[in-house]
Simulated assay, not measured.
Amino acid sequence: MSLRVSRRRPLVAQSEIRNMSIECAKVGGINLAQGVCDLPVPESVIRGAEEAMRRGSNIYTRFDGRVELRRAIAARQLRDTGLDADPEGQVVVSAGATGAFYSACLALLDEGDEVMVFEPYYGYHIVTLASLGIKPVFVTLAPPNWEFAAADLERAVTPRTRAIILNTPSNPAGKVFSREELSLVADFAQAHDLFVFTDEIYENFVFDGLAHIAPATLPGMARRTITISGLSKVFAITGWRIGYAICDPEWALAIGHFSDLVYVCAPAPLQLGAARGLEELGPDYYQGVAKDHQRKRDLFCATLRDIGLTPHVPAGAYYTLADISTLPGDTAKARAMHLLERTGVACVPGSAFYQGDTGETLARFCFAKEMKILEDAMRRLRTLPS
Rank of each mutant, 00 (worst) to 15 (best):
S2I: 12
R7T: 14
R9L: 14
L11G: 06
N19A: 07
K26N: 13
G28I: 08
D38G: 06
S44Y: 11
N58H: 00
Y60R: 09
T61W: 01
R79V: 13
L83I: 11
V91T: 05
V93T: 14
S103W: 14
C105L: 15
L108V: 00
L109M: 07
E114D: 06
I126D: 03
G133E: 01
V137F: 05
L153F: 03
R155L: 12
I164E: 05
F177Y: 15
I201H: 11
E203V: 06
N204S: 07
H212W: 13
S229V: 03
S229C: 12
L231P: 00
A252T: 01
L253A: 14
A254Y: 06
G256M: 00
H257R: 15
S259I: 05
V264R: 11
A275F: 04
G277F: 11
L281T: 06
G282W: 00
D292S: 09
T303A: 01
L304C: 09
L309A: 04
A334Y: 02
R335K: 15
A336C: 15
T343V: 12
T343C: 08
A346G: 04
C347L: 13
G350H: 04
A352I: 10
F353A: 14
D357A: 12
T358G: 05
G359D: 06
E370Y: 04
K372C: 07
L374W: 02
R379Y: 12
